[in-house]
Design a protein around this nucleic acid. Structure first.
Lengths: 158, 158
DNA sequence: TTACATGCAAAATATTTGCGTAGGA
DNA sequence: TCCTACGCAAATATTTTGCATGTAA
């Protein structure tokens, strides 16, 4: 159920002295950099999974226990508006947040219904097809959600 | 925001004397047919949109005002388990329910982000592609959610 | 200085559940 | 009759918000 990855190559949010990538994006976007935002930005920077508000709150509290849940929600809303994160729904009752690295990072999710494990995938054919479908219906696509739910094929069928 | 359609040809849930299609399915599946279930089944039968629990509750209350919200939720859960309805998420905070007519009725949603209007579509290429993607990832597809969010292309661009 | 972000706690929403009763098979 | 579904209200779970205070620019 947990799939945290570190990406020390492009980021480095583990150290306090370094400005995290998302912190830099906040500055670029002209957001006021408060201490809670800085901490949340760092937590997101060093994250490659899909935490819900509660999980983010836990991770953030380790660094600064004075940060409140309300700030998590308010910051996620703000970060979503400026495309720093995107909100996801994996069918359980809560929102998940995922950092957006850029258009090149676009992907979808394959969810293992037995273990809850989430795989990410990208498929160019699918991207093209979605744009085409929307266009045929008379729409310009602004967003889309695609989640596949499946069970692992045990081994090769012999 | 409302897109109720009637299908008197295949159903006929408007009259009290007739058993609705979903009522018949309930019986086939061996469900105990209580009065609330009968009413909810009829409401669903005469519906072709995607009501949330509140909307269903309103429609059901018109027929029998003694039916409670708890029963709406309990019945939706039951109906989902036996594939009479499927639960959908259109990005606002609540679940929507949609009757399932059968595999031949499978479709997805194109949501107009400006008006909230929901169009349904089906695309065979997309179906094939999803199965193929899941297979490539080592999964057998058991379910999937696809929602496209877009804005209407005003007129032809000239 | 001053506008805006924060913490706190209460509110709003959506959904679920315990319990005693009613009703279908 | 007997088991299950029901209504009611209270409980949960998630997210939002009003208000007084704190803080970045």
């Amino acid at each position: 159920m947990s799939d945290i990855l570190q990406d020390p190559g492009t980021d480095g949010a583990a150290t306090d002295s370094v400005t995290s990538r998302i912190e830099r994006i906040c500055v670029e976007k002209g957001l006021r950099m408060t201490e809670p935002r800085r901490v949340i930005a760092r937590v997101l920077s060093s994250t490659d999974d899909h935490p819900d508000a509660e999980e983010l709150y836990e991770r953030v509290k380790v660094i600064d226990s004075s940060i409140s849940m309300a700030t998590i929600y308010r910051t996620m809303k703000l970060f979503e508006e400026v495309s720093i994160v995107s909100k996801r729904d994996f069918g359980d009752g809560r929102a998940r947040y995922e950092k957006v690295s850029g258009p090149e990072d676009h992907h979808h999710h394959m969810i293992d219904v037995e273990s809850g494990e989430v795989l990410e995938f990208y498929n160019q054919e699918l991207e093209d097809l979605k744009i085409r479908i929307a266009k045929d219906l008379g729409f310009k696509l602004v967003d889309h959600h695609l989640e596949l739910f499946g069970v692992r094929i045990s081994e090769k069928k012999h």
